[in-house]
Simulated scan of single mutants.
Amino acid sequence: MSLFTGTASYYSRFRPGIPEDVAAALDRAAPTRTRSPRRLLDVGTGTGLVTRALLGRFDDIIAIDNDADMLDAAEFALRPRLPEGTRLSLVESTAEEFVPPTEWKADLVTICRAFHWLDQAAVLARLDDQVASDGVIAIFSDSSFWTATSPWKEAVRDVIKAFLGEERRAGSGTFRHHKRPYSEIMEESPFHQVEEARIPVHRTWTTETILGYLYSTSFAVPRLFGDRLQEFETAVKERLAGFSEDDTFPEENEFLIRFGRRSRR
């Protein structure tokens, strides 16, 4: 069972997408837009949020995920939006096992909100054969509710802990945090020239979108609550009511992007 089994519908509706400023930064980092075909490999695509943000900037796209339901949702979201002449392949595979078509080399590899699930050193080594000589990898994410520090998010996290325990869940298990900064891991890989970019993002949530987001995560997937799901929802609503009179909850977040390149030869 995937860590995200049962989350695809929530992921499609409630996971925040990729802001235009982030998409533009990814586009600028990749080799020139005059190249054709310009190839994107999106690792851990989920429902295709990164691919969707980059449509029109790449014309040969492979998006991979190991969850068939997520890929079905990505197909539904992306296929009708494909610009003319764009090729999209959705592949059910782990990053550790993916093999691209012969001679296919990515100009940009994106790994968004997924690097912590991977065998990081192994995937980075494997990408060395899958990326063009001047290609770029981009590992990036914003902060999840679990690590947030705003009072209303802390209150929501407290409710989750009251129902599921103090340790962050990861499906039927618990989450094991990677303590080393991603930049250090990348610096030990073929893509050892690392640059960082930080892009702020402001969002406004409602109780409905907060609950929907939670149900899209591995730490609050609905099946974890069993027959207490409705009780959990009621508890979240009661806690949130103390932070807003109009059911709006502002969030200041940030995308941290780490770009990795090989040494110039």
Rank of each mutant, 00 (worst) to 15 (best):
L88M: 06
L90M: 01
T206V: 09
W117R: 08
S183M: 13
F115C: 06
D27Y: 07
P200Y: 10
D60E: 03
R261K: 14
R87T: 15
R198I: 12
L55I: 08
T47C: 10
I137R: 06
L49Q: 06
Q130R: 04
S2W: 01
T45Q: 06
L54S: 00
F259D: 01
D27V: 13
I62Y: 00
R113V: 09
F163C: 09
V22W: 00
V99T: 05
E75R: 09
R262I: 14
R265F: 14
F219D: 07
V131E: 05
I257F: 02
D67R: 07
V43R: 00
T149V: 13
T34P: 07
E231K: 13
E20I: 12
T248L: 12
F219R: 03
T86S: 11
S12D: 04
R52S: 14
F4R: 00
R261Y: 09
A106R: 05
T45Y: 01
T86E: 05
R35D: 10
D69Q: 05
K153P: 09
R198A: 10
L118E: 06
F175P: 06
A30G: 04
A29M: 15
A29N: 13
Q193G: 11
A53M: 04
V136F: 08
V123C: 04
D65G: 00
E75G: 14
R126I: 08
E238I: 13
R35G: 08
I137A: 03
E238M: 13
E96M: 04
Y11F: 09
D72V: 15
A30L: 07
L54A: 01
L127H: 00
E231W: 11
D227S: 15
A68G: 14
Y10L: 05
R228Y: 13
I185N: 00
G48C: 07
L127R: 02
A77W: 07
A155M: 02
S143L: 12
T174L: 03
D142I: 07
V99L: 04
A63K: 00
V22K: 07
S150W: 05
R15W: 08
L214V: 06
R39F: 00
P16W: 06
G226C: 10
G242M: 12
V123F: 02
K237G: 09
F259N: 01
F225L: 06
T206S: 13
F98I: 04
P80G: 01
V159C: 10
A29R: 14
